[in-house]
Amino acid sequence: MSDLHQLLGNIRKHLPKEKIAYPQVPTFTKIKDKAVLKQQFIDALALVGGVCHDLSDIAECQQIMRDKLGGAAVICSATAEWEGNKTIADVAHPRDLDDVDLGIIRAEFGVAEMGMVWLTENSLKINSLGFLSQHLAVLLDPDTITENMHTAYRQIDFNASEYGCFVMGPSATADIGATLVRGAQGPRSLTLFFLKTPVPDQ
């Protein structure tokens, strides 16, 4: 702890005399209508390379992914409603998810402004699922979409997880010749399905 005291001592010695007050930051909210928020989410996600589908049951989602990724051999799901062929509970080490072609996750909520979804170890089960999977399918209850980053941060409980990530579409880079390429180190694609959170069985 003496190192901390030394650091604090150095800071105190050099602190500017004038103190600036902490400002009030509004949430800049404008939209009340849920349908408008949902549409904004769809548009924002499209801008960053994600695709949304509005479906009523899981079988339809599965069909879309079969059509899209015919060759997906290893499917691993962290959700209750979609069963894959690699059981996440049996995975011993995060690196063992390296062979996953399609990872399935239920997002905790969405942000309309950005087309982002919030994932934590509670939704990922193993964090590497969200990044080692070649492709991702994400389920999102449209009722959980919040308007912007201000409202998003006000609703997160940072005690509920050790890790949390706003994921906005697939992995991307423009580091070679300033050309946009999707699928840099993480997932090559992100398909989002609007699907209500199932009510637990009685």
Partner: peptide, 10 residues
């Protein structure tokens, strides 16, 4: 609009 990933470590 943002980076693709905004990651939080608690």
């Amino acid at each position: 609009p943002a980076t693709q990933y905004t990651s939080h470590f608690m």
